[in-house]
Write a protein that binds this DNA or RNA. Structure first.
Length: 275
DNA sequence: AGGCAGGCTTTTA
DNA sequence: TAAAAGCCTGCC
């Protein structure tokens, strides 16, 4: 099917934003997107008809039932950008001008929990490789609409069933036991990730950080990318630099609520591209 | 109590 | 060799 997207939407910037690790570039303006058990092949159409047209290898029902929500298409990102006064916050304004097109995907909380546990102390290529290896070890083998093979993201049951050697072979290192513990915690009901979607932000963060290997940074990433709590504000080494360099007198969290996490994404991406 | 140093697997530049 | 979307443990 073909879809027209008029609001901010730049697949290249989303793929590069560090919120998803299973978007593979397959051509000029084309991406193969894996999410949970699903796969979507997306291509930007340069047919001169109008801007923002994309070809998708799924039908209307699949799009309406899953992908529209996944891309957060009901949200108005242009409106979120326009809340910022350029004179009052020139750095954020500059970041948004350069990184326009980023959206906060509505990804699966379990997938985000495991992915961001894996992310700690690693760079993006290494994270992608480990996630892919984990999917190969524990995920169901699937075929997309074109018959191409891929692996679903493994369910908690499958991850819990993997041996320590299996997990170590995914290049997880010391994170292997954290991933296994997270699977056990979900299985035994120690944490209910889906219930956290409706919990308030503080409750979600404290439930997440109670898990072994999950600190404030990972918990905020899971909250922002997996629970779609748009006020969650992950602070990593890059954001620490941004906050100290650009906001020495403090960052206006209150003023930017409830979209702190969205603004964080623009700043994070821009700071990395600029330096 | 709360802050801080050191260690941790592996990959990448 | 240092750094990478960090966290845990032990020590003070």
């Amino acid at each position: 099917m073909i879809v027209s997207i008029t609001d901010d939407f730049d697949p290249g910037r989303i793929a590069d934003s560090g919120q998803c690790f299973r978007w593979n570039k397959t051509g000029n303006g084309s991406y193969r997107i894996l999410a949970g058990k699903r796969c979507l092949n997306l291509t930007a159409l340069e047919d001169g008809v109008e801007e923002g047209r994309y070809g998708l290898d799924c039908g209307e029902a699949e799009f309406a039932g899953f992908w529209r929500d996944y891309f957060d298409l009901q949200e108005d990102y242009q409106g979120i950008r326009e809340r910022i006064d350029p004179a009052r916050d020139p750095f954020l304004h500059e970041a948004m001008e350069h990184e326009k097109g980023i959206r906060i995907l509505r990804q699966d909380p379990w997938e985000m929990l495991v992915t961001f546990i894996i992310s700690q102390n690693r760079n993006i290529p290494a994270i992608c490789r480990s996630v892919e290896l984990l999917a190969e070890r524990g995920g169901e083998r699937m075929r997309d609409a074109m018959g191409q093979e891929y692996y679903a993201f493994p369910e908690p049951e499958a991850v819990a069933a993997l041996s320590e050697a299996d997990l170590l072979s995914c290049k997880l290192g010391y994170r292997a036991r954290y991933v296994h513990a997270a699977a056990e915690a979900v299985l035994c009901g120690e944490i209910d990730l889906y219930a956290l979607k409706n919990a308030d932000e503080a409750a979600a963060l404290s439930a997440l950080t109670a898990l072994t290997g999950v600190g404030p940074k990972v918990a905020n990433c899971v909250s922002l990318f997996g629970l779609h709590h748009t006020d969650a504000f992950p602070i990593d080494v890059w954001m620490k630099r941004i906050l100290s360099e650009q906001y020495p007198d403090g960052y206006p969290y209150e003023r930017y609520s409830p979209y702190n996490g969205v603004y964080q994404q623009y700043m994070f991406a821009w700071y990395r591209h600029r330096s």
